[in-house]
């Protein structure tokens, strides 16, 4: 496909791709614009003035259920899920480099976790807590529910990483007298660092936006997606869009920071060679 001239299909495919991108982002842009509606404005175009009215509205507690509290819970939960996802995925990724008894079963169990419908996980955990007489909470049952969704992604990324990982680095470290822990800390972790940022991003954003798995596991306090869902049924003003804009901008910021971090680590590595062993991680 390195031919000098573009194929005849190119303009059609390019147009198709452009339409697809418009399809992906168009609606999001629409609510972004509409969240700046004037105080008299409604849920659809035209704009009746431009204001920050609905953003201010968002922070008045009586208008929207418990925006602040649910945001706090979601952020904290996402952070904990992120940390656990990274640690557990790396640990399991290291284990899976070798066959061990039960490794195939564990692998298929992880894949199952990915394809079992979210609502089933949600119902199952909710029921389990109910039957055992435990109180479901966002930091216990919902945390577990989120991990069943983020860990498979984390582990699959680790597979992809370790499939391309040359064992000679570790062998060299060991020949030089490094302990197993030193090898992990100063050789393996620095090399896989950019992928870890990716795993962390999956962990954070998937948890932060998770709805179905939280539905029956969050107990009495809502997370942000549940709060937003509640709003869709009883809020008919652009404050809904303001909330959408705020959380989407936040998601984009997280994604942007992660991608920038990955790019920077890669660049630094290209410039300096590997920083493995320098202990700068």
């Amino acid at each position: 496909m390195q031919s000098e001239t573009r194929s005849k299909a190119f303009p059609f495919l390019a147009a198709f791709f452009a339409l697809f991108v418009l399809f992906l982002y168009g609606p999001m842009i629409a609510i972004f614009i509409l969240s700046f509606q004037g105080p008299e404005g409604g849920l659809t175009f035209p704009m009746r003035g431009v204001s920050l009215h609905w953003f201010a509205n968002l922070f008045e507690p009586q208008m929207v259920g418990d925006f602040g509290g649910s945001l706090q819970r979601s952020l904290l939960l996402a952070f904990v899920v992120m940390v656990l996802t990274v640690v557990i995925s790396v640990s399991a990724g290291l284990a899976f480099r070798r066959r061990f008894k039960g490794s195939t079963t564990l692998f298929y169990l992880t894949v199952t976790s990915l394809i079992v419908p979210s609502i089933l996980v949600s119902l199952g955990i909710g029921l389990m807590f109910r039957v055992l007489g435990w109180q479901p909470n966002w930091w216990s049952s919902a945390l577990g529910a989120h991990l069943t969704w983020t860990l498979p992604f984390g582990l699959l990324i680790m597979f992809a990483v370790f499939n391309r990982f040359s064992p000679s680095y570790e062998e060299a470290a060991r020949d030089l007298g490094a302990t197993p822990w030193q090898t992990i800390r100063h050789v393996i972790l620095p090399i896989i660092a950019p992928s870890l940022i990716g795993v962390a991003m999956f962990g954070f954003t998937l948890s932060y936006d998770e709805f179905a798995r939280t539905l029956m596991t969050s107990g009495v306090s809502n997370t942000l997606p549940l709060e937003i869902y509640g709003m869709t049924t009883n809020v008919t003003t652009p404050v809904l869009y303001a909330l959408g804009t705020v959380t989407t901008v936040f998601s984009f910021t997280v994604i942007g920071v992660c991608l920038a971090a990955v790019t920077l680590t890669r660049r630094r590595r290209l410039r300096q060679g590997s920083d493995a062993g320098k202990g700068v991680f």
């Binding site: 564990l106 169990l109 860990l151």
Partner: peptide, 20 residues
């Protein structure tokens, strides 16, 4: 290997197998 895989096994056992 088992120790390294234990956290994953624990989470999936507790929040996937038991619930199902």
């Amino acid at each position: 290997s088992w120790l390294q895989a234990a956290p994953l096994t624990l989470v999936l056992g507790l929040f996937l197998i038991f619930p199902i």
